[in-house]
Nucleic acid binder design. Structure first.
Lengths: 229, 229
DNA sequence: CCTAGGATCTTTGGATCCAACCCGCCCCTA
DNA sequence: TAGGGGCGGGTTGGATCCAAAGATCCTAGG
């Protein structure tokens, strides 16, 4: 038997190096290890992964497509810094797009998916760690869109989440943590609507959930203090 | 035009090769010279531009970021083919995002911008050529968003326009041309609202404009006939 | 002491060469 | 004759090397 492709389910074929680098960098950016505004040197990254600079360039292009990095010719790549107004508009975009994504997803969600959502929500209520809370919250929402078959929509939603990750983290650390019970209550209502497969309720609840977050964020100006230079 | 990073004004400092290739390819795709589903060979493109394959790869990555091409490892790049439902959802996304973009743009539009919009609309009403009509219509709308300072939003809007360009063309050729007077009437109303700087009216009119297009498109199933293979 | 200018140095962009992989053709077998 | 496995051509991904643009720092002059 000649090697019959180790291909797993759905994922890309032979683990391209550039993809691996992109995955690691994405993780690093989302965790804040690479701060907004920080310069990303191709050479340094290439060295860290034991690869040439070429796949790094490809990886940076992929991340740019996801809204995680900015490119300027001969000036390298950076994680963009969003200002207050930009964050506000991104949240408004989320208010409008994510209900659509949820509506598209709802009919395709399996019982297993719903059970998984319930489990995630349980863990959200259980954890005390802020970073874990953020990761689980992200997983909860994105998972609820997993039935959405429209690539254009799903990828854009992920992109919007990516670009506000930094501010979510700062917001939580600055005292937003005290409002977690509101998040949990809203998640429970949302989950209930999803279980009932009530598209209208689910979309409305989600829209309100995001809007509330946006307003609270905009009333917490300290979140943006650090970005004057 | 949003998004198009055009280096310094008036001067051609770097003229990155990859950018030039990306520009040409984008034009070719938007004009339909490269059909959806058609395979794009790196070697062929490189030869056509007298360059190496490397900048072609970079260019293809850029186009992928704009939603114009799809990549599969070791299988090359192609222009994606959208199905009926996908197109419908993309239009729903446009209904929700473009009013937001217009609202963000409106306060920053100069008198010159408005005059330019008026001129474009005049040319739209004058032309008989379908391809020119499509290009001008695109220019009209994107130009009306040119005041939007939020990169995330502008780039996504361009992406959505890109991904439906093919279907707009087919729709027009299949008899949609007869409805051009509706488009013109709506554009005039929209233009008037923009001149009055009436944000609410402008957003509502634009939303209706896109929605009408979506519904008409969905009632014209012939547009999607060709995509069975 | 501060500023302007230039040389150097770092970093990115591009070309060429090599390796890995997909696809299609062909042959072999049942 | 039909179906499956294997082999080769062509295409894409990656490494190394070279050129060019931006950033930095040092010096010289006001």
């Amino acid at each position: 038997m000649p090697r019959q492709r180790n291909e797993g389910a759905g994922d890309g074929p032979a683990e391209a190096v550039s993809r691996r680098i992109a995955d690691h960098l994405r993780e690093a950016i989302l965790n804040g290890e690479i701060a907004p505004g920080e310069r990303i040197g191709q050479e340094k990254i290439a060295e860290r992964f034991g690869a040439s600079r070429l796949p790094v360039r490809e990886a940076l292009r992929m991340l740019e497509a996801e809204g995680l990095t900015e490119h300027r010719t001969h000036r390298g790549a950076r994680v963009p810094r969003l200002g207050r107004h930009e964050v506000d508009v991104v949240y408004r975009m989320r208010e409008r797009l994510e209900p659509l994504a949820l509506g598209e997803s709802l009919p395709h969600l399996t019982e297993d998916d719903v059970r998984a959502l319930d489990e995630i929500q349980r863990r959200i209520e259980a954890t005390e760690d802020i970073l874990e809370f953020l990761a689980l919250d992200r997983e909860f929402h994105l998972r609820s869109y997993s039935g959405c078959r429209i690539d254009q929509l799903s990828s854009i939603v992920v992109r919007l989440w990516n670009s506000t990750q930094h501010h979510r983290r700062v917001f939580m650390r600055l005292g937003g943590a005290g409002r977690r019970w509101v998040v949990n209550a809203e998640h429970r209502l949302l989950l209930d609507a999803i279980e009932r497969r009530d598209r209208v309720d689910a979309e409305r609840l989600l829209e309100g959930h995001i809007r509330r977050t946006r307003v609270e964020l905009s009333r917490h100006p300290d979140v943006f203090d650090e970005e004057t230079p």
